[in-house]
Design a protein around this nucleic acid. Structure first.
Length: 161
DNA sequence: GCCAACGTTGGC
DNA sequence: GCCAACGTTGGC
């Protein structure tokens, strides 16, 4: 593992944007726009280039961690907050002091076998994962290095980095 | 489609 | 600053 690297989990509804969409995007990179939760935004502001991200499919059948992405650009203003006709428009966010940020992430890999939420819950070493906490809805959340290692092992994936 | 668990808004 | 009402998330 790379010293200083941090690990995260980001949720996306696959019907809106899936890991396949990321893999097929130009340069396999996307801007993670649309985050409108302060805690999630603050986590994005902590991200550094090279940090690794578990890509999670929410509202999916089954909900699951499906692969890995990498942070390639640190937080910068999310332009959709200023677009009046946009679903994520925020009239309370002044362009002089943007309220919402996004980061860019790049595709790294799709797990051969995705890890369902149910499977993750069966793993005692993951019992403290933010994802698995009761009532947890955070769409951007930290993952510990230990949790990261367990998840990759369960996925049969090579340690990245 | 249901609804629990949250987060935000706004009247007071 | 309180808190009821409302909106959203996301598993089931």
């Amino acid at each position: 593992m790379t010293p200083g690297r941090r690990y995260w989990l980001m949720k996306s509804e696959p019907r809106v944007f899936s890991i396949e969409d990321l893999a097929q995007a130009p340069t396999q990179t996307t801007s993670w726009d649309g985050v409108r939760n302060y805690q999630a935004r603050n986590f994005m502001r902590e991200m550094a280039v090279g940090d690794l991200v578990l890509f999670y499919h929410s509202n999916a059948e089954p909900p699951a961690v499906v692969g890995i992405a990498e942070v390639v650009r640190t937080a910068y203003p999310d332009g959709t907050q200023f677009e009046k006709t946009h679903h994520h428009y925020d009239p309370a966010s002044p362009p002089s002091a943007p309220r919402w940020d996004m980061v860019d992430i790049r595709y790294r890999q799709t797990f051969k076998a995705s890890l369902s939420l149910e499977r993750l819950r069966q793993e005692p070493r993951l019992k403290d994962m933010v994802l698995l906490r009761k009532g947890s809805r955070l769409s951007v959340q930290p993952v510990t290095e230990a949790e990261w290692a367990v998840v990759l092992k369960l996925a049969g994936a090579k340690q990245t980095g």
